[in-house]
Design a protein around this nucleic acid. Structure first.
Length: 200
DNA sequence: CTACCGATTGACT
DNA sequence: GTCAATCGGTAGA
């Protein structure tokens, strides 16, 4: 498996393109306890000044300053006493970001079980705050350069995934109160590790 | 300083 | 299906 980090140029593109292409990539996290991670199966795009749901809609603050920096860095924020992780995209100064909402857990399962205090795979990394807890991602990693290939980075996914399990679906974003009608959520249809309520 | 709110989760009917 | 915990960030006095 190729664990080399995705390059800066991957992130330095249109947010919608990056968000969609993040599906199938792997998110990796190494600490003293070991390596943990999995394949990204759900992502949301946040479009900065043009997007009332984005944290950067009203300009830069101490909290969201990472989004205004160069692409290929993490934007980690807290909500309801939990952490969530984005990757910053597009040229420096354009505060667009892609929120990683769910992984298929694959690497370091027992480590993630320990951090989450849950046994079931479905409860480890299904949801943006759950995956951050499973990977020990918190404020210390806000602004982290994910192209360095250490501590926290993204890498290519497996190449032999079947087409059936890689059908991309689009929907409105989950949980937002503003701009709740925009189709900016990308996920693998029929993937059990995608967050949100089940529907018929 | 205070008041309000949320890109969530987990527990409960 | 419903609902509240919980606390950092933000705006405003």
């Amino acid at each position: 498996m190729n664990d080399a980090p995705l390059s800066r140029s991957f992130y330095n593109r249109d947010c919608l393109v990056v968000a969609r292409e993040l599906l199938g990539k792997r998110l990796l996290r190494r600490t003293e306890e070991g390596l943990a991670g999995g394949t990204i199966v759900e992502v949301e795009a946040y479009l900065g000044p043009a997007d009332p749901a984005s944290h950067s809609y009203r300009g830069m603050t101490r909290r969201n300053r990472s989004m205004f920096g160069p692409p290929g860095h993490a934007y980690v924020y807290s909500i309801h006493s939990r952490w969530c992780m984005n990757v910053v995209v597009q040229p420096e100064g354009t505060p667009h970001a892609a929120l990683i909402r769910a992984l298929e857990p694959q690497i370091g399962l027992d480590l993630m079980r320990q951090r989450r205090q849950r046994e079931k795979l479905l409860e480890l990394t299904r949801g943006p705050a759950r995956l951050c807890e499973a990977l020990a991602i918190d404020r210390q990693l806000d602004g982290w350069d994910v192209t360095l290939g250490k501590d926290l980075w993204l890498a290519e996914g497996e190449k032999d995934e079947s087409e059936a399990s890689r059908q991309i679906a689009v929907s409105p974003r989950i949980g937002v109160t503003a701009a709740h009608d925009l189709p900016l959520r990308f996920f693998y249809a029929n993937c059990p590790y995608v967050s949100g309520r089940r529907r018929a």
